[in-house]
């Protein structure tokens, strides 16, 4: 994919992410996040939530992956902004969807909007700015 393949309104293929306890723990460790609410159910419950939940850096990782799965190896991520809503608790499933929200022909970048929803609501709303390798080199 190159910049010229993009147009506003283009939809990204949906991605289903099962939020298992293993997925939460694997993501927490891979992002060096050892906060106990991401691996210790009793510690999570002590803060008033029902179970362990995904850490924000893993959500950030899934958002980045969701965009590059579609945009390919030539895509270069310039910026990711995410806002979390309801948590991704163990046992849930997150469905990521997105579209090309805006094209900047001068900068040859595109803004992608992504939303990830789980069984209890919107987990993440994200805006990602991408360019392409041949545009910058």
């Amino acid at each position: 994919m190159t910049f010229d393949d993009l147009h506003a309104g283009q939809a990204l293929p949906e991605l289903i992410v099962p939020i298992t306890a293993s997925a939460i723990v694997a993501g927490a460790i891979a992002t060096n996040d050892f906060e106990n609410v991401h691996h210790d159910k009793a510690a999570a419950q002590a803060t008033g939530v029902p179970d362990i939940f995904m850490n924000i850096l893993t959500t950030n990782g899934f958002v980045q992956r969701f965009v590059t799965d579609w945009a390919g190896a030539n895509a270069r991520i310039r910026r990711i902004a995410i806002r979390l809503g309801v948590p991704n608790f163990a046992g849930d499933v997150m469905k990521l969807g997105g579209e090309v929200a805006a094209i900047d022909p001068a900068a040859r970048t595109a803004e992608i909007r992504v939303s990830g929803r789980n069984g209890i609501g919107e987990h993440v709303a994200a805006t990602i700015t991408i360019g392409f390798a041949e545009e910058v080199r």
Partner: peptide, 13 residues
Amino acid sequence: YTGVVATNIEQEY
């Protein structure tokens, strides 16, 4: 205020 949850990240590369 012992609970903590991350709500936003904006990263620029």
